[in-house]
Design a protein around this nucleic acid. Structure first.
Lengths: 192, 192
DNA sequence: GGATTTAAACCGACCGGACGGTACAGTTGT
DNA sequence: ACAACTGTACCGTCCGGTCGGTTTAAATCC
């Protein structure tokens, strides 16, 4: 009698399988979070935004935690999808993938990073899948290069870029930003 | 009949004036946020944590928004205090100040940055004072140096460091982190 | 091939509880 | 005594979650 999304914290990656309702619900949640703050994500509000009833939302995500978990899943799978789309043999491709992920999310203004805030606000343990992913990526990055400190600084700058965008913090203007991104790219290329 | 903290969004910087109750309340809020997530900051929970009654909390902060605003105020004033404590004539002292602020917050584990998350979760507009401060700092930093891109990357890395610490994301280990911080310091020094 | 069954998808009234906030009666320091 | 402060009972609202019912469409039966 229960539906396609497990709702468990250790759910697997596939969220958009049915293509319609779940995806629309998650999109609605992100829209609300971006517009009014992650604290305003309520089941009723999400239902209204997705043109669904409260029951409809709870059918697809049996609990609110399941919904937030789905949000995190969606973000991580989107992240992985962008990563695998890159040229396979690039030396520090993991690092470049992170940068592209952030840039794409800032181009489309479709802010998946909002999931991080929502998760952190409701239950820090929801960040565990993200931590696991990031640990693996970081390990790969730090062994891919000999200048681990420079690589780490690039990683940190990329994360800073993500949160700066997410919280709408000042970025020094469009031209500076553009040149910073270019510089980050050359820094990545120089890392071997 | 109303008390010492205005609770208005544009409240001034001084939060710890009475030295006891307000500060203890804010500390309690931060403790809860760090332990259970910013979503768990409720007036009752804060009162319990601060060994106070709910009325006592609401006496010091007439609304919850005032409390969150106080949290943000405390963070910003702490930030400014650290900044002014630095050697006045350092060329890029604003940048160095930002780094030291983050490092201090990570040493004392007394995580003022939690205020950012709490504010973003409840009402994005609460971040406005932070945005104002940051805009000024950024302007100063970018005019202090000729290599604006490098300076910006350092700023981003510092912000990344803050959120990495805040969300307990992987940091590559203590030794890497230590070397990264050293490298950031030399990068700042080389900025003129 | 029309009637019946089954199950997925969804609806919306409802419940218990927690939340933010108010009112007011203490209590304490001076 | 008086102001500063604290404790607590309480109110209206909203939230997460349950549950019985409705729709839709495919499967099954005869």
């Amino acid at each position: 009698m229960q539906a396609k999304v497990s709702g468990d914290v250790k759910a697997s990656g596939q969220t958009g399988v049915s293509g319609n309702a779940s995806a629309r619900i998650l999109e609605a949640a992100r829209a609300i979070a971006t517009r009014e703050g992650v604290g305003k994500i309520t089941i009723q509000a999400v239902a209204r935004e997705a043109r669904l009833s409260k029951g409809g939302v709870l059918y697809n995500f049996p609990t609110k935690q399941a919904l937030l978990c789905g949000l995190m899943d969606q973000m991580l799978s989107e992240h992985r999808k962008i990563m695998t789309r890159l040229p396979e043999q690039h030396p520090v491709r993991t690092l470049r993938g992170h940068l592209e992920t952030v840039l794409q999310s800032q181009d489309t203004c479709d802010d998946l990073s909002m999931a991080i805030l929502a998760a952190a606000a409701s239950d820090p343990r929801l960040l565990d899948p993200l931590r696991a992913d990031l640990t693996g990526d970081l390990e790969r990055i730090l062994t891919d290069t000999r200048d681990a400190e420079a690589a780490m600084i690039v990683v940190l700058a990329i994360q800073g870029l993500r949160f700066q965008r997410l919280l709408d913090l000042p970025d020094g203007g469009a031209d500076v930003k553009k040149r910073v991104i270019a510089r980050l790219r050359t820094m990545i290329d120089e890392l071997e």
